[in-house]
Write a protein that binds this DNA or RNA. Sequence first.
DNA 1: ACTAAACAGTTACACATGCAACTATCAACT
DNA 2: AGTTGATAGTTGCATGTGTAACTGTTTAGT
Lengths: 148, 148
Amino acid sequence: MTDRLLLEEFLPYRLVRASELVSRRFAARYREAYGISRPEWRTFAILGQLGRTTATEIGRQSTMHKTKVSRAVASLEERGWLSRRVDEADRRIEWLTLTATGSKVYAELAELARSFQQQLADDLGAEAAAALERGLAAVEARFSVSSG
Amino acid sequence: MTDRLLLEEFLPYRLVRASELVSRRFAARYREAYGISRPEWRTFAILGQLGRTTATEIGRQSTMHKTKVSRAVASLEERGWLSRRVDEADRRIEWLTLTATGSKVYAELAELARSFQQQLADDLGAEAAAALERGLAAVEARFSVSSG
DNA sequence: ACTAAACAGTTACACATGCAACTATCAACT
DNA sequence: AGTTGATAGTTGCATGTGTAACTGTTTAGT
């Protein structure tokens, strides 16, 4: 029993916990305001940023499973926030764009996110926030899509 | 459309993605080696570290829902890795401890975690790893259990 | 002693999720 | 043209998960 694993020093564990603490709070905000789920928020945010993209691309960027994305897209379409259009040249591909309503909601959600980010940065303090960003950048660089 | 939210600069999103990238890889390791799920690993790791604890305490530390913990405990008991005993003074409480088998497996899993951690630190580099730890510490300090 | 509230833990049920298999389409090779 | 393999996306099914309701127990107030 001399060699216990100290979870408070174990990076993957700390990352998961920190991520849950933060994203849970943010999720509460947009859930209360718009009644959307996490996969929906993620899908919507990526589409809003890119303006026009595909479900596959959303899956790639978000690390969400393609069925998750597929269902989120279907749900957002039902809400009337996005619309699909089949690519003429390659009819397997569906291009997603925001509707007028979607654009309006997106602007509001983006503002909500920005204010949350600001609050978070204030809470953490400039130095700690910068350190966190540097650390995350390193993880992203080492672990992202390409590097299996 | 001038004010898109840039997800690559949005901390909650980056935190979630980084956490998923890292923990997914680590999960693949212990899943292949021992066939346990993430809630099982988390429960087991906390119990192993504390030596003797309760389901409620595990929930508190891990941010896992109590039903998740309850099921993980049941599953680990079936594997013969832990045993329960009702507290004499307060019979609502169940004390959890590792069995002999459980202790043996825990030692191996702890070693697996340590080697993963080492590998991760090497991949990130000392400086980035330290920055990440500082950032996470700040999040933990601001967002942990007590602070609503 | 009695009632109400609090707590540890489990379970029923509805919903979310991932895997595998599917449809539809395209590209490459014969 | 026909076959094979890859790709975009959806769906059936089994499993995982959270909410709420439950049991059993303790504590506090009356």
